[in-house]
Write a protein that binds this DNA or RNA. Structure first.
Lengths: 107, 107
DNA sequence: TTCTTCAATAACCAACGGGTTATCGATCAA
DNA sequence: TTGATCGATAACCCGTTGGTTATTGAAGAA
């Protein structure tokens, strides 16, 4: 029974997959071909990774002719942010010098 | 060459390991025995997970007689928060670009 | 139509990772 | 000293996973 954090952590744990997501966040919508060109792995590998990302809700696809455009859905990072905040919160309730961490979360 | 996010995501991707970290965040310092009792896996498995968490800087250990106490170091979550903020930031900046573009088209 | 291109799927393989049991060193108890 | 307990390590097993090549279907191009 995988919860939201589970899926997100597992999905983002792979460097190649995380790099794809990062690229989509940085540069916006991309075709599979464009993503493959810079990924260092084969097109089927990219397609598989994109499928996993889509399953986690981190990207969406848009078909246009014979090419597929993928784009990031950073809203899906919500559960990750929640989990991290919760962990930091537990810690904060027991200790005080958390300012550095909180500052980073603030921006 | 694994960067900080890489180590953190990989470390937290396993549910058993994440549960151990969560428990240490919630309840503070615990011995290996106490953690094992509620973990659902064997003591060697728990020791291995704690080793991985320690390597990622997420926990520290304190030896006292023949037992070892572990505690969470949530400050180590920093790079995770940084990464998430950065991704959300890219999203935001592209959104701003779009807004900017639409504004310019408006005039 | 025929040929090419794009991306998804199939089939397969090797490596990794998380689990186990067995064991060992170290510490406390008798 | 002897025996029990705590936790780390070793050795091993097996399922998962990330990669590959080959192939397929769909959509332009000629």
């Amino acid at each position: 029974m995988p919860n939201a954090q589970d899926v997100l952590f597992k999905t983002l744990a792979d460097p190649t997959r995380r790099a794809l997501f990062e690229r989509l966040c940085r540069e916006g919508e991309q075709t599979v071909g464009a993503l493959t060109a810079q990924s260092g792995v084969s097109q089927p590998a990219v397609s598989k990774h994109l499928g996993v990302l889509r399953h986690a809700g981190l990207v969406r696809d848009r078909h246009e002719g014979r090419q597929t455009h993928y784009s990031a859905q950073p809203g899906a990072l919500g559960p990750l942010i929640d989990w991290t905040s919760r962990m930091a919160g537990f810690w904060q309730s027991r200790f005080d010098d958390l300012e550095d961490l909180l500052k980073r979360m603030d921006q």
